[in-house]
């Protein structure tokens, strides 16, 4: 019997050594010291033994029980004290999630920034007649300004004097907002735009975000404030903004908005123009644009701006994508990086 006790003790010692969790310790305790436990059962058998043998076996069994209890207690301390060892370089198991597209993330972020300053999000049509993209924006027929847009026209009979076309800029949405929404108009239109060009910095289908704010008392100060707010919120507070006088038919005064180059910090480098990078255009609505929307330019004034979503997104340092067309190739090896 002493031999059995010894064997049990060796087994128990081994089992406890291997134990890594409290569950296992508990089951070892039950296995050896529980009501039906191996050692307990053995101890019960002691009273069947001849009286002479009882003290010796009883003593051995008890000391075995004490040792097992001590080892178990030490093991518990060990485990609770965090001394468990496994190979921690084993790879993680992560659930398979999908991915949202970079353009979606850019649009959400841009819309959220403008929502903070009260711009309601809208989404205007892609397919228009020449009215909203050109005529209502002070670009009458036969004006050279229309030539500069590389427009896609639809294969359909014109509606009166106006051909059907794909809008080359989100500013057609600005004209729509002015014509259809009640004053004060303050909306950010994010939509698809189309131009007949395709190269490393241009895709034929792309997105723009166009903002407009028209009401009594809107001034250049608001335009500057809105633009600075967006630039600093999107690009970071260390970036500088420059409003460079420019020319658009639908705004007067007009500007191009530049941001200090994120690569050379404004010193001038291969990628920028004298330390500045062009973001997009802006200006105060031209009186003819207000008139086209049946608003009185002597009472109402407005600010407007229109920038490319992809371009703005790519200009944030950290994403060095050399060819914009990759955004629309839908190679899963690209899409699943984000």
């Amino acid at each position: 019997m002493i031999k059995q006790i010894d064997t049990l003790l060796s087994e128990a010692r081994l089992a406890i050594q291997e134990a890594k969790t409290s569950n296992v310790i508990e089951s070892i305790r039950l296995e050896y010291l529980g009501r039906q436990g191996k050692l307990t059962t053995l101890l019960r058998g002691v009273k069947e033994l001849p009286v002479r043998e009882r003290p010796q076996v009883g003593g051995a069994a008890n000391s075995a029980r004490q040792e097992i209890e001590q080892l178990l207690s030490d093991a518990v301390d060990r485990i609770e004290g965090g001394e468990i060892a496994i190979d921690t370089t084993l790879p993680g198991i992560s659930p398979e999630t999908g991915h949202l597209h970079l353009v979606t993330k850019a649009i959400e972020e841009i819309a959220a920034i403008f929502k903070q300053i009260g711009f309601t999000r809208v989404r205007h049509p892609d397919i228009e007649t020449e009215w909203f993209p050109f005529e209502a924006l002070n670009m009458p027929a036969d004006h050279p300004a229309r030539d500069e847009w590389e427009t896609f026209f639809m294969d359909a009979k014109p509606s009166g004097d106006y051909r059907f076309m794909l809008t080359p800029h989100g500013t057609s949405g600005t004209a729509r907002s002015l014509a259809t929404l009640p004053l004060p108009v303050r909306s950010i239109n994010i939509q698809k735009c189309y131009r007949r060009q395709s190269d490393a910095s241009h895709t034929p289908v792309f997105h723009q975000f166009d903002g407009v704010y028209a009401a009594e008392g809107v001034t250049f100060q608001h335009l500057k404030g809105v633009l600075e707010f967006f630039v600093k919120a999107y690009f970071g507070t260390e970036r500088e903004v420059r409003l460079r006088p420019y020319h658009f038919r639908f705004t007067e005064p007009s500007f191009e908005v530049d941001i200090s180059c994120g690569v050379c910090n404004g010193k001038g480098c291969r990628l920028c123009k004298q330390g500045w990078v062009e973001l997009g255009g802006a200006g105060m609505l031209h009186p003819n644009v207000l008139k086209a929307a049946k608003l009185n330019p002597k009472k109402i004034s407005g600010l407007a701006f229109g920038w490319g979503v992809e371009r703005t997104m790519l200009m944030r340092s950290g994403l060095s994508i050399p060819d914009i067309r990759i955004l629309y190739e839908n190679d899963m090896r690209f899409l699943q990086q984000f």
């Binding site: 903070q116 300053i117 009260g118 303050r186 704010y213 809107v218 001034t219 250049f220 100060q221 608001h222 335009l223 500057k224 404030g225 809105v226 633009l227 600075e228 707010f229 420059r242 409003l243 006088p245 007067e252 005064p253 007009s254 500007f255 105060m284 031209h286 009186p287």
Partner: peptide
């Protein structure tokens, strides 16, 4: 409006401070 632009651009847009419109 063209005269406004002439005055403003020479005055310097960087000399005019930006303001946020009333937010809502």
């Amino acid at each position: 409006e063209d005269v406004v632009e002439e005055v403003a651009r020479l005055y310097g847009y960087h000399n005019i401070a930006g303001l946020l419109p009333p937010s809502s």
